[in-house]
Simulated scan of single mutants.
Amino acid sequence: MSDLELALHLADVADRITTARFRALDLSVDRKPDRTPVTDADIEVEDAVRRVLSDRRPDDVVAGEERGGSIGEGRTWVLDPIDGTKNFLRGVPAWATLIALVDGGRPVVGAISAPALGKRWWASAGGGAWCGTADRGPERISVSGVRDVADAYVSTTHLGTWSEHHSRDAYLRLVDACWENRAFGDFWHHCLVAEGVIDLAAEPVVNPWDVAAVQILVEEAGGTFTDLSGAPRFDGGNALSSNGHLHAEALELLKA
């Protein structure tokens, strides 16, 4: 089984758990030390994925949101069992399991599965970016061709995080320069950039497991992914995805 096949198998394992627990009346919710929520489904998914990896890739390192671990220079599987936990626990269907394989500090495989949306995205180095739905099957995806920020569609997460972690004024400069804006948030807006549905997705604060799978998806779709300093990394603490054409101007507008 190739690494990509394994990532998709892990997504299947996760989907069976998350779909069974989504909108469950007995869902258990707790708060982590950073006051973000965690459900019993988050823990169950990460533990299940780790068990499969222990069997299939015993020599690889695993780093996950709930059980920890470090990302080194070797092969590391980076897991976010449920990205969009706040949506998950409220019954909003915009959440996903994110699985990435990082090797030499770069994501080489990524899978993003959003079963409540009926969609899954995946990519591998040199293999392109793909999206699949139950009724249409796999389709190769690519970013938009929009070249003028005035024609661009931009998305972010919660606007308040810009005040806390970067600059609200900087994000509003970008919004004012663009044609349209929304806050799709989390994994979804990066996937929409990769699909060419929107053109920019900006986040003032992220963790590595939030965007490792996103980076390779956007890049393999022909786009650009960096932190807000312009470095092409998933562990820079913030993120900007774009179709590539708009990236430099968006970074300039986002300067704090």
Rank of each mutant, 00 (worst) to 15 (best):
A7D: 05
A7Q: 06
H9G: 09
L10W: 07
V13G: 07
D15N: 13
R16A: 15
T18C: 14
T18F: 01
F22G: 02
R23M: 13
R23T: 07
A24S: 15
A24W: 06
L25I: 12
D26Y: 12
V29C: 11
R31Q: 09
D34W: 04
T39F: 15
T39Y: 14
A41C: 13
D42H: 10
E46T: 03
D47M: 10
R56Y: 10
D59P: 09
G64R: 01
G69V: 01
S70Y: 12
G72V: 11
R75S: 15
W77L: 07
V78Y: 03
L79C: 08
L79I: 11
P81V: 02
I82Q: 03
K86C: 04
K86H: 12
R90T: 07
T97L: 09
A100F: 04
A100V: 01
V102G: 08
D103S: 14
V108Q: 13
A111C: 12
A123D: 04
A125K: 03
G126K: 01
E139D: 12
R147L: 10
H158K: 07
S163L: 12
Y171W: 15
L174I: 05
D176K: 14
C178W: 05
A183T: 13
F184T: 02
F187M: 05
W188F: 13
A194K: 00
L200F: 02
P204Y: 06
V211R: 04
V214A: 05
G230K: 00
F234Y: 15
G236V: 07
G244T: 01
G244S: 09
L246A: 10
L246C: 08
L251N: 04
L254S: 07
K255F: 09
